[in-house]
Design a protein around this nucleic acid. Structure first.
Length: 305
DNA sequence: AATTGTCCCAACCGCAGTTAC
DNA sequence: AGTAACTGCGGTTGGGACAAT
């Protein structure tokens, strides 16, 4: 009888994540069942696949769903039923698991509530009409919120001391949602925030008070939240047998944030794996990784280039 | 401070579809 | 054509975090 190797279950730790990421970054995805053995993981291929697809792969948007996304999910669920992968395809940065969880824990209740509300409102409307056929105010019974019910955006015009231009940032806030349009039309992801940049260059340096405490990354001016937890450091040396050089990668990670510092001394910042190479050798970096991956953009998309 | 209840989400399981042989 | 292996999907669950008592 062949003894099955011990397979770990349960929550993944950061060391396992690093191993899986490092392996896939270097060799790509070729066979989920074989991969864990080569990556030094005591996990099933299925578990690795799930971890990668739902959590570690690049371009996953995590955190709160916007109102627009909520409406899309509700609409598509109505049209398609629980076909989460199809729905996820329409929300490209969200995983089917995330959408499914969000539906099961929040949206489903809301839809049921709204349907009940709608049914009782309709009943009420009928009774009012029956009682008083001249009453024209009954269309307000459903009390559906409008855009006017949401808070006004806060805005800030800020001057960047490191650069020769000013930038405007508008923070649109609600309890669960931040939208930070900013800076040179760049779509950015900041730690814990989904940032979109819509600003134009301006020569205004006034700063309004009462804004969230945001500081800039020294490398790329990506706004980060003050007090964001210190990253953990993980490092390892990899020697490639096909090539004549060794290389060292240093991953600085926290729950939501990756920074990749090395390879040919290039400072990089990654969100998930949207990497930004800011050194003069960035072309070399990209061509190197193009060797391993089909689409450079999948792994090394740089919104600032 | 301790206990209990609730919410949320990462991860597991089983099944179906696809691919390779 | 049949079978095994692999992959993807959707339902479900375990357990951590937080709130309420």
């Amino acid at each position: 009888m062949v003894r099955q190797p011990y397979l770990k279950k349960g929550t993944w730790n950061s060391d396992e994540d690093q191993k899986l990421i490092a392996y896939i970054m270097r060799y790509g995805i070729w066979n989920w069942n074989e991969m864990p053995r080569f990556a030094g993981l005591q996990r099933s291929g299925k578990s690795c696949r799930l971890r990668w697809m739902n959590y570690l792969r690049p371009n996953i948007r995590r955190g709160n769903f916007s109102r627009e996304e909520e409406e899309t999910i509700i609409q598509l669920q109505k049209e398609l039923g629980n076909r989460w992968s199809t729905i996820a395809a329409r929300l490209p940065q969200r995983t089917d698991n995330d959408i499914k969880n969000y539906w099961n824990t929040r949206l489903k209740k809301r839809v049921i509530l709204e349907n009940n509300k709608s049914t009782s409102a309709t009943t009420e409307t009928y009774s009012i009409i029956e009682e008083n056929s001249t009453d024209t105010e009954s269309s307000n019974l459903l009390n559906i919120p409008t855009m006017d019910d949401f808070p006004e955006p806060l805005s800030c015009i800020n001057t960047s001391p490191e650069n020769s231009y000013s930038m405007r940032e508008t923070f649109v806030s609600s309890e669960n949602y931040w939208d930070i349009p900013s800076f040179m039309e760049q779509p950015l992801i900041a730690q814990g925030f989904d940032c979109e940049a819509l600003a134009t260059t301006e020569n205004n340096s006034s700063i309004e008070e009462n804004l969230p405490d945001v500081e800039s990354s020294s490398l790329l001016n990506i706004p980060t939240m003050a007090g964001f937890p210190e990253p953990l450091t993980y490092s390892g040396t990899f020697t490639s047998s096909e090539n004549s050089y060794s290389m060292r990668d240093t991953f600085v990670s926290s729950e939501n944030y990756w920074e990749i510092l090395s390879f040919m001394e290039q400072p990089l910042i990654a969100e998930g794996f949207d990497c930004v190479a800011s050194s003069p050798n960035s072309q070399l970096w990209q061509s190197h990784h193009q060797h391993y991956y089909d689409t450079v953009d999948d792994f090394w998309a740089n919104p600032l280039f």
